[in-house]
Design a protein around this nucleic acid. Structure first.
Lengths: 375, 375
DNA sequence: TCCGATTTGTTCGTATGTATG
DNA sequence: GCATACATACGAACAAATCGG
């Protein structure tokens, strides 16, 4: 039998997970050995091996005749180190994505100025990775956590870990999106308004057939879509369902471009403008439309999102929604320090959260509609 | 059976006594399990129970296939904190610079797979900031450091900190550049060759007046400049001193563009090609030349460096030197873990360092010279 | 206080997998 | 490739402590 899949290790992990999720609290009795035998369909020996190691690692303690109980890890392990605990964890979905470095840097500079260390973690937008990281943070020694939620559009399977963080009095703040059930301190752009601004700008320029292309497995994209729809409603414009293109992390490389290609084929009611999930997507689409001989913005206007480096470096400078990257990072850092200092208990009146008002930076990728130049 | 006379406890006591009597010394092999079974006339399970507890108490350690050995208790006591030390510091000059996130991510993914935490620090390419960070790392609890040297071209005022890290047996590896005095384990691109490739490609295309624009306050830029000169030498080409533009971090926003502007004014012996310090610089220059009505690559060829996201997203796709970003990050991570495991002492024969062979990715920003199209 | 059910503690036997030299 | 050593896993039995009735 392979070591990595050792049964006793699975049992260990399971028990440890339950502790970290807060399902078993200090001095609470865990299942008896015979119960665990049934549950995992293993021999008593195997159960005892698992429990034995957890006892040695300080997670549990045993009392003959009474049972096995959850140990109080804080006292034994942390008390000595705790005073010097100046570690902050920053958890992002994609470190290398183009706007994150700026956010991280904003946070890092503020935190290091205040004597904190910054550890970074990467979920790759995957729940199991997020779980692993939360597990690690909970069993290590962090004073606070700045986290961007994974797959923020769906219900979160790791909710228990967040609740346990609250119980363990480890403050956390969320950036860019949030799990609303938790009502966390959060820092994010008003994405509904952002999507609204993107769309309204084009409507004001006379556009009527506006395609939107949004990634909808995170809350950001879903909210931007809401804003896109809202702008149409407010202007009493008919909304063509065909003009709404959505994609997920999994198919982000193919679907947006394929679907837009399909739309541009039909010359009747052809779109005159496109709002995009972010600047990077715009640039990829610009490549494609250039090959097709479509001119931007004369034939087709584009609005980006994030106002990233790309928006300024591209040939056609992008009209884009300004994302307060660096400021957001600093604000999140300031808030987490405040929470740490206040021992995670702030006055009800003091709302640390911030919803940033988006603004549109108008450059050269959008122009008034010109019917004579229709594609 | 009474607990006080538990067989496994007797075995424990016997082994412990032998160690304390000096009959078994550090790293000496004790009797195998089967020998102990015969000696004490007990089952294997009982022997394992005794040994298991002694392992947990730090008296022994086991090696599968080899045997069970007497542990060095002095060390284990001192390094009991170090056993759990799974923190790696990554120190970069500019976190948000466009290629760093990819390097960091390469390192982070490998390190987190191996159970390490990653802390990041940012020197902003300033010595005093580097000093602050090194101070902090030395006074905290890091198992290893991956660092990009600050101002790598000049003599380093923080050398003592590096020497002290060696004394404290904190392994470090350098990326992208190195302080040669230290002869560190390092991972970097062969920048001389990179600059050579940039230039040689243009010479091969028939260009003779080639401008180079390099940042020379780091070793990367200085080496690329060397490569640029070397390419001219090898091809027996006259080198026009006016064609060498250098700049520093402080004036990177103005000097490159101003100097190039100056050069292009003079119609006599006007350059036909430009090699740049990195892709980002190329894109900024592309903006400027576009305004001037200069076409790329017809009138003026450009070669970038790093093969970044920008090279593929720009309108004119950039010919650029490939930087092994992610691979370099992983390699550095692998090396630091190896150094930690080997307690910073590797065999002289085992050279962990790696100098990456650069390659040129040819895209559309370079073309054969065409005298008829001279600017 | 004692009983009985439950729970952990100790010990035996056996078998097979995996790493080392 | 082989013997040896440790690693994982099953089954069974009895001892000792705890707890509710």
């Amino acid at each position: 039998m392979g070591y990595s899949e050792a049964k006793y290790k699975k049992i260990k992990q399971s028990i440890k997970t339950n502790i970290l999720k807060g399902l078993i609290t200090t001095n609470e009795k865990i299942s008896s050995e015979s119960q665990l035998m049934k549950e995992f369909k293993v021999s008593r020996h195997t159960v005892r091996l698992a429990i034995g190691e957890l006892v040695n690692e300080g997670w549990l303690y045993r009392e003959q005749g009474a049972g096995t109980f959850c140990a109080d890890r804080r006292e034994s392990n942390l008390s000595s180190i705790n005073e010097n605990n100046k570690n902050i964890a920053i958890v992002t979905t994609f470190i290398s994505e183009y706007i994150f470095p700026t956010i991280i840097r904003g946070a890092e500079s503020y935190l290091s100025e205040h004597g904190y260390n910054v550890s970074i973690f990467n979920t790759n937008n995957q729940y199991n990775q997020e779980e692993k990281i939360l597990t690690q943070i909970l069993s290590s020694n962090y004073a606070g956590v700045i986290i961007e939620p994974t797959h923020s559009a769906s219900a979160n399977p790791n909710l228990k870990y967040y609740l346990n963080m609250e119980k363990e009095k480890i403050p956390y703040v969320m950036i860019n999106a949030m799990y609303e059930e938790l009502e966390p301190v959060s820092f994010s752009l008003d994405d509904v308004k952002g999507g609204f601004l993107q769309t309204k700008h084009l409507i004001d320029l006379g556009h009527r057939d506006i395609v939107c292309i949004y990634k909808t497995d995170d809350a950001q994209g879903q909210n931007r879509l809401k804003g896109y729809i809202k702008a149409h409603r407010e202007c009493n414009l008919r909304l063509n369902p065909k003009n709404i293109i959505t994609y997920q992390t999994e198919n982000e490389h193919s679907k947006p471009i394929d679907d837009l290609k399909e739309l541009l084929k039909v010359k009747a009611d052809c779109p005159t403008a496109v709002v995009c999930y972010n600047d990077q997507l715009v640039l990829r689409l610009l490549d494609f439309v250039r090959e097709e001989g479509i001119k931007v913005p004369e034939h087709l206007s584009f609005v980006g999102y994030d106002d990233s480096l790309l928006a300024e470096l591209s040939e056609v400078k992008l009209t884009s929604v300004i994302h307060p990257k660096s400021e957001l990072g600093r604000d999140a850092a300031r808030a987490i320090i405040r929470l740490i200092q206040k021992n995670n208990q702030i006055d009800p009146g003091e709302d640390l959260s911030k919803l940033y008002e988006p603004q549109l930076k108008i450059r050269h990728s959008t122009a008034p509609i010109d019917k004579d130049l229709a594609i």
